[in-house]
Computed example of a mutant assay.
Amino acid sequence: MKYQSGNAGRIFITRFEDGEDPLKELTEFARKEDIKSAIFWLIGGLKEGRFVSGPESDELPPVPIWRELHGNHEIIAIGTIFWYKDDPKIHLHGVYGREDSVKMGCMRDAPEVFLVLEAVVMEIINVKIIRDFDEKSEMILLKI
């Protein structure tokens, strides 16, 4: 295990509107506010999105299992923001529910807010953490 100790910086309360893409909005928000490291929590609704619900096997590099959301779903999620090269990268894992169906996974593509989605973003300061390409997994992973 590798780690660094940091401090809480600014704390933002955000609201995403119906139809917005929260991954895109969080990326632009991090760029605008120059947030290099952060943790965030989401609560609200999504009506679309593609997410990964695990790899097909324990082999590396992993082959993702893709799933989709269609129609409104409740969401509760947690994520991080760390930069890869010149761009903030969002890593978001959530639980998505509708009626008696509950799904969970890493939201990666085209999420769309249903009605409203709220976020609390807590900046982490005094750390030097980035994302970088990992050859073994062929993924962009946290580098501490």
Rank of each mutant, 00 (worst) to 15 (best):
P64R: 06
A77C: 05
L42M: 14
R67Y: 02
V52H: 03
P62K: 13
L69R: 00
P61R: 06
T80I: 08
N72H: 04
V52E: 12
E48S: 10
H73F: 14
T80G: 08
E33D: 04
I43H: 03
F40E: 08
I43F: 04
F40D: 10
R50M: 04
S53F: 09
V63Y: 05
I65Y: 00
A77E: 02
I75A: 03
I81D: 03
R67H: 06
V63T: 15
P55V: 03
T80W: 00
R31K: 15
R50E: 08
K47H: 13
Y84P: 00
K32F: 06
E74R: 10
I75R: 01
S53W: 06
W41A: 05
Y84N: 10
A77N: 02
W83N: 09
F82V: 00
I75E: 05
L42T: 03
G44T: 06
L42G: 02
L60N: 15
P61V: 10
E33T: 00
H73M: 11
K47M: 12
A30L: 11
E68L: 09
S57F: 11
D34C: 06
G49Y: 00
N72D: 02
E33F: 08
L42H: 06
E74T: 08
R50I: 08
E33Q: 14
E68R: 13
H70G: 05
A30S: 15
F40G: 04
W66T: 05
L60D: 14
R31H: 07
L69H: 01
L69D: 02
F40Q: 09
T80H: 06
P62Y: 07
L46A: 08
H70V: 12
I81Y: 03
G49A: 07
K32C: 02
S37V: 09
L60W: 14
S37D: 11
V63N: 11
E56R: 15
H73P: 01
V52M: 06
I35Y: 07
K36P: 02
K47F: 10
W41D: 08
G45H: 11
A77Y: 01
I78M: 11
I43G: 03
D34T: 10
N72I: 00
R31C: 01
K36Q: 13
P55H: 05
T80L: 08
